[in-house]
Amino acid sequence: MTQPTAPAGPTAALADALTAEYAAIWAYGPIGVRLSGAARAAARDAEAAHRRRRDALVLRLSTTGGTVPADRAGYALPFPVTDRASALRLAVEVEDRAAAFWRAALPHTTGADRDQALAALVEYALRATRWRRTAGITPLTVPFPGRPA
């Protein structure tokens, strides 16, 4: 899951978002094992949110004749996760990056698809903010969530 490139159309945009969801789900594995207590519960909750969106996207793409990209066995992490601090930093990164893919889908969608893309962008931006608070990272917010740096 890197920066989204401009997708070619609605189906490509949603397929890109699906690859981001796969990677996010995968990343919460190494994140979760480094966390405990409330943070671990929040990681489980976040992972479940990404699984719900993955399932909805697979259904959406397969029922409208789109190509469903395949999940991979593993994903390269941007940095090693060795302790609580690096796990929380990765959680921030995962949510920020997933938000970026849904933001990239907004121009390619209308109606219910756009509503869902916006809901995902907002939810992941919120999760990134909550992870920053847990990690003690300030400021808690970024001016343009999901916008490529």
Binding site: L118, V122, A125, F144, G146
Partner: peptide, 11 residues
Amino acid sequence: RAALLGSIAAA
């Protein structure tokens, strides 16, 4: 304009 407004809503 959708992406900018989406970022503003999320912010």
